[in-house]
Design a protein around this nucleic acid. Structure first.
Length: 461
RNA sequence: UCCCCUGUAGCUCAGCUGGUAGAGCGGGUGACUGUUAAUCACUAGGUCGGCAGUUCAAGUCUGUCCGGGGGAGCCA
């Protein structure tokens, strides 16, 4: 395999000519020499190529060395007299593999706004910032798998299409093969028995319930896959299609769950800091000043842990600061989460034991009968990054909760079976992968940390 | 879905109380003894988001639709 520019930049000067491939990022031309920089996406830095016009002067080619052009360049890697690079390529022959006419190529050698780049999502990975995001995202994905694999978790592929109507984590996208112009009906209602699966089906909003199945056979499992929410939400931290990581651990209480979540976040951050130092420096300099130091301190510190009740007391002390008055029984508002992470604790905080009425039916009830064994990890800038809980493992209590919340017990027959046969304490959490990337890079809009963002009214590319 | 802001050259923006448009960057041309956000000179780019209205006159005011951004809710 050909060496990548990332590797070439670390090499000693050549004794024999080599061939390099890449795309032109920028060109600087003068009377006798022409410099251009090549990128192949393997790293943030470019390889500087120098053309000595006296020795090699193909005018027709030099004119086509525009930003974006794809090249094959033969030359000698030599020590660079310049300040910004150790080596550079002295070109002896340049072959244009693909031109990029400067009059129409949208990317210029200047800063572009992220809003503009979103409109050209097919070209934006060629920019420094989005290129760095791409590498960090890939490294973080690898770190996710490595973290769990090193600890004996099994990667379970939970379904993308779900015909069970029992997830309740938000609005769902319907999946159907029925002709929408001629929907079969019975008594005025859609006849789903005629549909592909014989019943109404949707894209998954969570793999948790299925992950629980495998946790109760393989102890520790995780999922990492696309998740779909048809919410009409228009914010910098919501997507209709996003990637979620959901570990589920048997013989594990809320405390073990919190330990796992904390260790996990630190592990992925540390992996990215160690393996994407150059890209992280870009974010540190241009996107969120000081983020590298702040992430380093997160890795080395202990996450604060408070109960919802304690957090509420803290908020009530400063009730006048908030638009929404904090009071026990009401969910934490964005401003409350920001205050806790940014003002009170200045770092990640785990809030536990929320009132049962603001949490999902499957969370384990506390002794007090009022709160459940839930935990949310809140971080500065973003708010909630993880939501998790110890699961209710008592058949009686879970059944009662399902009935209390007016859910159909029959829909949950297999979920209840897990409590009927060999039920043990188990816990898990869900982490939005894009939010983690946002947290690590400082990128303000979630649409810029996923290659092809899907949001309300937008599924372009 | 609600509140606020915004839509002018390829990009980022300026355009005061209404009088038919400007900068920087980018592009093109030329100059320049190795540049690295190169530099310098010249030059070409605009139905001012769409539609309707007020007015002698609308980039500027009003209504409406569409796009973008920020905040809120929902959540990961």
């Amino acid at each position: 395999m050909r060496p990548l520019i990332k590797e070439i930049l670390l090499m000693k000067p050549d004794t024999e000519p080599r061939t390099v491939y890449g795309w032109v990022r920028t060109k600087r031309d003068s009377k006798n020499v022409c410099f251009f920089e090549l990128s192949d996406g393997s790293c943030l830095k470019n390889l500087q190529v120098i053309v000595d016009k006296e020795k090699y002067n193909p005018e027709s080619i030099l004119a086509k060395l525009t930003t974006g052009a794809g090249l094959e360049v033969d030359g000698m890697l030599v020590e660079s007299p310049g300040q910004n690079q150790a080596v550079e390529l002295q070109a002896s022959e340049i072959k244009i593999l693909g031109e990029a006419p400067a009059e129409t190529y949208p990317l210029q050698k200047k800063r572009h706004s992220f809003e503009f780049l979103r409109e050209i999502a097919h070209l934006r990975p060629r920019t420094n910032a989005l290129g760095a995001v791409t590498r960090v995202r890939s490294a973080a994905s690898f770190a996710v798998h490595r973290f769990f694999q090193e600890r004996g978790y099994y990667y379970v592929h939970t379904p993308i299409i779900s015909a069970s109507d029992c997830e309740g984590a938000g609005e769902m996208f319907q999946v159907t093969t029925m002709d929408m112009n001629e929907v079969p009906k019975v008594d005025g209602k859609v006849d789903y028995s005629k549909d592909f699966f014989g019943k109404s089906s949707s894209l998954t909003v969570s793999g948790q319930l299925e992950a629980e199945i495998y946790a109760l056979s393989h102890s520790n499992v995780y999922t990492f896959g696309p998740t779909f929410r048809a919410e009409n939400s228009n914010t910098a931290r919501h997507l209709a299609e996003f990637w979620m990581i959901e570990p589920e651990m048997a013989f594990c209480t809320l405390e073990g769950n919190m330990d796992a979540a904390e260790e996990f976040i630190k592990y992925v951050i540390k992996y990215v800091l160690d393996n994407c130092a150059e890209d992280m420096e870009l974010f540190n300099k241009f996107i969120e000043k000081g983020i590298v130091d702040s992430l380093k301190s997160v890795v080395n510190s202990k996450f604060y842990r408070v109960t919802y009740t304690e957090a509420m007391k803290e908020l009530e002390k400063n009730a006048d600061k908030f638009e929404f008055k904090p009071s026990w029984g009401v969910d934490l508002q964005s401003e409350h989460e920001k205050y806790l992470t940014e003002q009170v604790f200045n770092g990640p905080v785990i809030v536990t034991d929320y009132p049962k009425d603001i949490k999902a039916f499957y969370m384990k009830m506390n002794e007090d009968g009022k709160t459940v064994r839930a935990m949310d990890v809140l971080v500065p800038r973003l708010g909630e990054i993880i939501g998790g809980s110890q699961r209710e493992d008592s058949l009686e209590k879970l059944t009662a909760r399902i009935e209390d919340m007016d859910l159909e017990k029959e829909d949950y027959w297999w979920y209840l079976d897990l409590r009927r046969y060999g039920s043990v304490p188990h816990s898990g959490f869900g982490l939005g992968f894009e939010r983690l990337i946002q947290y690590m890079t400082g990128m303000q809009n979630i649409r810029d940390v996923i290659p092809f963002p899907r949001t309300v009214h937008n599924a372009e590319f």
